[in-house]
Design a protein around this nucleic acid. Structure first.
Lengths: 155, 155
DNA sequence: GAGGCTATGTCAGAATATTGACATGGCACA
DNA sequence: TGTGCCATGTCAATATTCTGACATAGCCTC
């Protein structure tokens, strides 16, 4: 059983380090995106749309790790500001495909430069094999957590 | 320079994977903590207090990666519910040291069991050397980001 | 001792995200 | 056909966190 008053050693816990790294990355990204009038969620949304045009609001939400309700208000703002366009009528189901406007692509180009510099900084202490290893391990953690959630939910 | 319309490959980007892993970990932790009336930030606060009794609100905020204002509201709630106690008067400066109550320790013990199971699940696909390597790489990323922020801010 | 600097605690307002709920459109299946 | 099920878009209410601002306490330097 758990030892009361002992707990987890936060200094060496992979979970704590993961949270710390994610927090540091988010802060660094917010800092470079703020001058562009952007934040991390907005950038993620634009980046997703650049790679996969026509994504729905729900799909964008999953890709940016927010709820579809949050993504909806974000998309409304981006559309109001002229960075994206949404189809008025659904082609299939209730899905309203979204696309970048030229203006959105220009904004994304600037943001990408800023964000890429942050990632370069973050990885500056790691060799190429280490970066690949880090990516594999993170993928393993994600998959294990998803696996654990589904099996626990199916009990 | 950045290629407009190309951007970052999200599938293999360490930054994106880091965000994905952190999001999955957070969700999994919230799921196991909710039945206990807890969330991740509350758990982090209690865990920090268990390891280092007498921490101030600002120090707890830094350890839990939130602002000191957010930690303040959280501490008020935890104190109201009898999980922590804060000194009424500052012993040094304006610092009001905080400590766990026996009730807080009991709650933390339950939460620690739940959280530990999540971390075990997350690391289930990695060997012990891989876990150590993951911890080292995450630490390297955190340090590099902090280093980059200070040098960029001091320009 | 005076002044500058930093850190802490706190208040107020705004931004952001979440949960809960509902109607609707496709899909599988009997 | 029609029934159950799931996903999507959307509205409303709530919760959480952040930014900005202020006063105060300690520290350092002169």
């Amino acid at each position: 059983m758990a030892q009361v008053g002992e707990g987890v050693d936060l200094e060496t816990s992979v979970g704590y380090l993961l949270k710390e790294a994610s927090s540091a990355l988010r802060t660094a990204m917010e800092d470079v995106l703020r001058p562009l009038g952007m934040n991390v969620t907005r950038y993620s949304c634009l980046e997703l749309l650049a790679q996969r045009p026509g994504l729905s609001s729900s799909e964008l939400a999953r890709g940016a790790f927010v709820t579809r309700q949050s993504m909806n208000v974000l998309l409304q703002a981006l559309e109001r500001e002229g960075y994206v366009t949404r189809a008025e009528t659904a082609t299939v189901g209730k899905v309203l495909p979204t696309r970048l406007t030229p203006r959105g692509r220009r904004l994304l180009a600037k943001a990408t430069v800023a964000v890429r510099s942050v990632e370069v900084t973050m990885l500056s202490g790691l060799s190429e094999p280490q970066r690949s290893a880090a990516a594999r391990m993170l993928r393993s953690m994600v998959d294990a957590l998803h696996e654990g959630a589904t099996t626990a939910g199916a009990q």
